[in-house]
Structures are given as C-alpha cells and as structure tokens.
C-alpha cells in the first residue's frame, strides 16, 4: 500500500522531501454532469508501444495510444524500479483502464471514451512538461475531449 508507514525509510524520505510544484492559479473547470464527459486517460507510467523506440529517462514527450492499438502491445518503460509492476503484468486495467472506460461509455455512464489515450514518462522534472502538455491540451480540444483522467503510478 502506498501509505508512508508501509514504505522503507529511504523511500519515505524520498517521497516526503520531493520538491512538488505549487500552482497559484490551478485551472478549475465548473462542474459538468458525468454523462456529458468525453474522457481521455493520461498516464505517467512511461507506457510505450511494443517495438517502438524506448522512452529516454527524463523525457517530457508523450506517447499516443489509439483505440485500435491492442492492450497486449503496450509495455511499461518507466525509469523507476520502486513500484509494483505485477499488477500491470497481470491486468493493464490496473494502470491504464481503456477497456473499463469504453464500457462506461457503452453504458452511457459517460458520454464518450476518447479515441486516443496518452502516457508520459514519470519521474521527469515537472517544469519540463510545459510545451508537451500545451500540445496535448490542444490535441484534446481538437478532439472535443472535455475531461482528462490523470493516472500517476
């Protein structure tokens, strides 16, 4: 469990002293009904497509996973060894729940699951992401996506 009391001292210290960015003006979009949400998933698990180029550590780029791209050809290339990978190996929905989201759309719980979902490399310095995040935000707007579900690991 990701509770500090269940971690080693080194891991706990690392997480407790991690320099986190503070945002004075976090954008807050007014509430919208769940059934109107068109949702994209954005993971920071360092996911890549099988046989694609590896993701360098510290990269701020993102990878795109089209709905037709099969789960069986999504790999985890995250730089850190300090988190569980058994769940990802057993069931990708524990990390990147594209199939679950599609079900929610089919059952009209949400309006739509995005055609594309995305993944960044975690453990990259937050300030490096500005350009690629702006690019992704524009991509989401062009695809008429109104909700992003962010999934750190």
């Amino acid at each position: 469990m990701a509770r500090p009391e269940h971690m080693t001292q080194a891991q706990r210290q690392g997480l407790e002293t991690l320099d986190c960015p503070v945002f004075d003006n976090a954008a807050f979009v007014p509430p919208r009904p769940l059934e109107q949400c068109r949702v994209a998933l954005i993971s920071s698990a360092g996911l890549m497509k099988r046989k694609e180029e590896n993701i360098p550590g510290g990269s701020a780029d993102y990878r795109t996973f089209e709905s037709k791209w099969p789960d069986r050809d999504i790999l985890m290339n995250h730089i850190s060894v300090n988190f569980d990978r058994t769940a990802f190996a057993e069931d990708i929905n524990s990390v990147f729940p594209r199939a679950l989201l599609k079900e929610l759309a089919e059952e009209k719980v949400i309006a739509e699951a995005a055609k594309n979902h995305y993944a960044f490399m975690g453990a990259t310095a937050p300030e490096k992401f500005r350009e690629s995040v702006e690019q992704l935000a524009n991509e989401l707007k062009s695809a008429d996506i109104n909700t992003a579900c962010l999934l750190p690991v």
Binding site: H6, C37, T86, V153
Partner: peptide
C-alpha cells in the same frame, strides 16, 4: 500500492468503482 492506481488486477468490479468515483469528481 505504488504502480496500480486503479487497484486490484483482474477485479473489474473493484476497478470500476475506483474509476467511476474519480470521474464523478467532475
């Protein structure tokens, strides 16, 4: 635990609860 934001592998009912609860925050 770190590495599984949606929780229990191979437990779609549980995973769905997590995902829906998160999305309801909108």
């Amino acid at each position: 635990e770190l590495g599984r934001p949606i929780g229990a592998p191979m437990d779609p009912r549980f995973q769905r609860q997590v995902l829906v609860k998160a999305l309801q925050l909108v």
